[in-house]
């Protein structure tokens, strides 16, 4: 792949595997745009919401009962409805998809998560990367980053893996950790974060 034409790198990652760290390093080395929180920030603007309103729903699927009950939030014509927009999961995904597609068209960039690898699968000059690691390694990173206990880190990892897998399954209709759909799949717990950055840079060259 030639680096002198616009390109996009999507990074799908397990919690604690170093997705953000590696993504930011790559962006710095390649001098390209890094898109992570910016995606949710732009989605929030699109819905006239605050970023914090959407953070808790990022890359997550509402349960059936949550979605079902939420559909009644705006139905009553005579009651005074809340000044809230509560986008459905589909509406939120659609908004983020548009944002990701726009970023990819506008400039070379690194896009973190949000089914980016699926959304841009037909995009020319696209490289998809999946980062994973063993639980021990990831727990250690999560404990350090979030300053939580080992048990809390374990629960965070289990929940995140479940939520991201469900999110990906819902919108991409594929198994999230299936390496066959990515150009590169790296076990960062074995290779190390900086070495992973080196390997990806070599591949890009």
């Amino acid at each position: 792949m030639k680096l002198n034409s616009p390109f996009v790198i999507t990074i799908s990652r397990q919690l604690g595997s170093g997705g953000a760290y590696i993504g930011q390093k790559l962006a710095k080395n390649l001098n390209i745009f890094y898109a992570d929180r910016e995606i949710i920030s732009q989605a929030a603007k699109q819905f006239s919401l605050l970023e914090e309103d959407l953070e808790s729903r990022d890359e997550k699927i509402s349960s059936f009962w949550q979605s079902f009950l939420q559909s009644y939030a705006f139905t009553n014509p005579v009651a005074y409805e809340p000044p809230q927009i509560i986008p459905t999961d589909s509406a939120l995904f659609k908004a983020e998809k548009e944002i990701i597609e726009h970023i990819a068209k506008e400039r070379s960039s690194i896009i973190i998560g949000r089914c980016g690898s699926y959304i841009l699968q037909e995009y020319p000059n696209h490289i998809s990367i999946f980062l994973h690691g063993d639980v021990t390694f990831r727990k250690g990173r999560v404990r350090k980053i979030y300053n939580v206990s080992e048990e809390a880190a374990r629960k965070m990892i289990a929940q995140s893996d479940k939520e991201r897998a469900l999110y990906y399954q819902t919108f991409a209709d594929k198994e999230w950790p299936d390496a066959r759909q990515y150009d590169i799949s790296l076990d960062t717990s074995k290779i190390g974060l900086d070495k992973s950055v080196e390997l990806i840079m070599k591949y890009l060259e």
Partner: peptide, 20 residues
Amino acid sequence: PKKELGMALGINGMVISVAS
């Protein structure tokens, strides 16, 4: 909390719908 607000408002809305 924000992530449960849709459900909570939906419950309120559903109560109104049932009352109607």
